Simulated scan of single mutants.
Amino acid sequence: MASVKALTDLTLRDLWREVKDPATLWGDISRETTRAVKNLLENRMHDELADYLRAGRYVRLRSRRGHRNGSYYRRLTTTYGTIPDLEIPRSRDGRFRPSVVDRYQQRTAQVDTLIRAVFLGGVSTRQVGAILAPLLDDTISASTVSTVTKTLDRAVDAYHRRPLLDTSTYLFLDAVSLRVKTPDGTRRRLVLVAYGITTTGQRELLDYRLVRQEGQGTWEAFLTTLACRGLIGSRLQLITTDGQRGLHTALDLVYPHVPRQACWVYVLRNVAQQLRVRDRERCLHLARRIYQARDRATAERALQQWVRAWRRVAPKAVACLLRDWEALLAFYHAPARDWRRVRTTNAIERVFREIRRRTRPMTCFTNTASCERIVFAIASATNKRWEGR
């Protein structure tokens, strides 16, 4: 006959043997947690009603402010699970408002935060509910997700309107293309992005703007907004771009006296398109020696040598590089420690890769507002990650 241990002698191993089905243990814990939360909220609301009436249940006092009027039930989704029948007491005068649950509230603030986080992680509105269903024990509809994420619109507007400090020494400008649904079908929209490096070396995504097409008008409006908000360019030493002509025309109007650096990655990519496949590796290897030179004079000599070597073999490739040769060497005016990061737009391209990664599962955005929210989330997360670096 097996001996029975005293309760005080039981170990954790002994208690674990009492669990008949370990596979369902966490489900049981979840249900018990939801039940405990339900009891906690209901007891809290009954106590608040007693304070409001200045009298407990079945207490007859002349000083009481009113009487109870039964209760009603509401479905409430929490991060601990869904409570299908939360009892909410009410007063006869109809003025009692419990602090734990607002009028018409069906989800806690933490659930809304979780929905926004999943959406900003790149999950489409139709898939958010399916992903969260096992955790919340409830189905979140696509319309609910859209309603919750619309609360980001105020934050997006504040981001576009916030004042900018005129502390940037380097400014990077580029654009990324995204697919957005419109009344006349799916169309590509461009996101203009401004990225700055301050006098202390702090990086920041200054702003972005969703536009129909990239040109002088859109860039001029975007840059003018930056200047009006505080980025007048008094400390700017260099502006790095991909060489888009409309952008340069806009820069002539907004920041006319700031030197410009042409992105070496874009230029060499265009040069490669003018080369025969068998010549590309050798030609581009020699071209890279130009920006790897120790000073501008050495870089100019390397450029002359490259031109002499390839003018007859690939005249179009040589013409492509010579078109912007002065802008390609503008980075030599900056301190040597900054040459590597200011001669290309690679810094802003890393942000674009993150935007593409987060938006790829969505295929396309249902409207421009949803596109704004995602880009804002990435910009905010990026700036927060860069703080103090």
Rank of each mutant, 00 (worst) to 15 (best):
E281G: 10
R308C: 06
R323P: 02
C320G: 12
V277C: 11
A317Q: 01
R311D: 14
R311Q: 15
E354T: 14
W264A: 08
R269C: 09
R353I: 04
W310F: 04
V271H: 09
R278H: 14
I355N: 01
R296A: 06
R337H: 13
A302S: 13
D338M: 00
N346W: 12
L286I: 04
A272K: 07
A302W: 12
N346Q: 15
A299K: 02
V342H: 13
V271W: 07
R340A: 14
T344F: 05
V265I: 06
R357G: 09
Q292V: 00
L321F: 04
A334T: 02
R353F: 11
P315W: 08
R288H: 12
R280T: 14
Y332N: 01
T359Y: 12
W306A: 00
E354C: 08
Q274T: 06
R296N: 07
V307N: 11
R343A: 04
A347T: 04
V318W: 07
A293D: 08
R343E: 09
E300F: 10
A336K: 04
A314D: 00
R276I: 03
C320M: 14
R341T: 05
W310D: 00
D295Y: 05
A297H: 08
R276K: 10
L328E: 11
E281Q: 12
R341Y: 10
R357P: 09
E349P: 06
W264H: 12
V351A: 08
N270D: 12
V277Q: 13
R288P: 13
L275W: 05
L322W: 12
A347P: 10
A314F: 06
